[in-house]
Simulated scan of single mutants.
Amino acid sequence: MSEQLSPGYIIRRGSLLERSLLLKFMQRTYQDLFPNEDFSHLEQTVKQYFSSNTPLWWVEEEGEQGSREAGEQGSNKESFSFVPLSPIACLWVGNAIDQVHGYRHAHIFILYVVPEHRRRGIGTALMRYVENWAIQRGDRQIGLQVFQSNKPALNLYNQLGYQTQSIWMVKFLSTEK
């Protein structure tokens, strides 16, 4: 079942059968940011974390989603076959535990809009969609991580009222002795 996300776009809940499509979108997301890297390890991430407890939504262009087929001969019944359109955006959400207060909250694993559909309000609409979803299930906050170099995403999240709560720091270790 799908619903309108914003003018010209619909959102539908993904299924566990769409694991390979999710992986494709994840690889494309990271490839946009780091074009010279290999992201084959993301398959393990999807395998480990994608479940019925981590909802996935797809955004598609609004339009004819299927074709009408002839009904049973001699009856007025019509049957419809729906062929999904190619998604132009995805949103995958998991759960996290607030380390200060201890309550569960939504955590955005990935929000990705293909480049040719950016700057049309899809990212904003997806963020509002997931915020409403999280409120309905009783969450008090939503968390996400964003690369410091991803200025468009940082701008979006700042405009929507997201604030930096912590800084994730890493140190790369030498394995040579």
Rank of each mutant, 00 (worst) to 15 (best):
G121F: 10
Y129A: 00
I97T: 13
Q141V: 08
H101M: 15
Y112F: 13
G102P: 11
R119S: 14
G121N: 12
R128C: 06
R118W: 02
I110H: 05
V83T: 11
Y103Q: 15
V146T: 12
G121L: 06
H101T: 15
W133G: 01
L91T: 06
I135Q: 14
G123F: 03
A96I: 04
P84T: 05
S81G: 03
L111D: 07
I97K: 08
V93M: 05
P115G: 11
Q136Y: 02
Y112N: 04
Y129M: 01
A106E: 03
V100I: 12
S79D: 08
M127Y: 01
L85I: 00
C90L: 11
S75H: 14
V83K: 10
L111W: 03
G143I: 11
V130W: 04
N132K: 13
E131H: 07
R140L: 13
A89T: 02
E116D: 12
F147G: 03
N76L: 10
G121M: 08
V93E: 06
Y103N: 15
I110M: 08
S79Y: 08
R104Y: 14
Y129S: 00
E78R: 04
Q141C: 11
H105M: 10
R120E: 12
A134T: 13
R128G: 05
T124P: 00
K77E: 12
V93H: 05
V114P: 00
R104W: 12
V100K: 05
T124F: 03
C90V: 02
Y112S: 02
G138K: 08
R120V: 12
S81R: 08
R128I: 06
W92F: 01
Q136E: 12
P87D: 00
I88G: 09
I122K: 11
R118N: 03
A134Y: 11
L85G: 03
K77V: 08
C90T: 04
A106Q: 04
G102T: 13
L144C: 14
R104S: 15
K77F: 09
A89V: 02
Q99W: 12
D98P: 06
V93T: 09
G74D: 06
I88A: 12
L85T: 00
L85C: 01
G123Y: 01
P115Q: 14
H117V: 08
M127A: 03
P84Y: 10
H117Q: 14
I122Q: 10
R118G: 06
I110S: 04
E131I: 05
L111E: 08
R120H: 09
F109M: 04
R104N: 15
T124D: 07
R137K: 08
V114Y: 02
G102W: 07
H101S: 14
Q99R: 07
V130H: 03
Q145H: 06
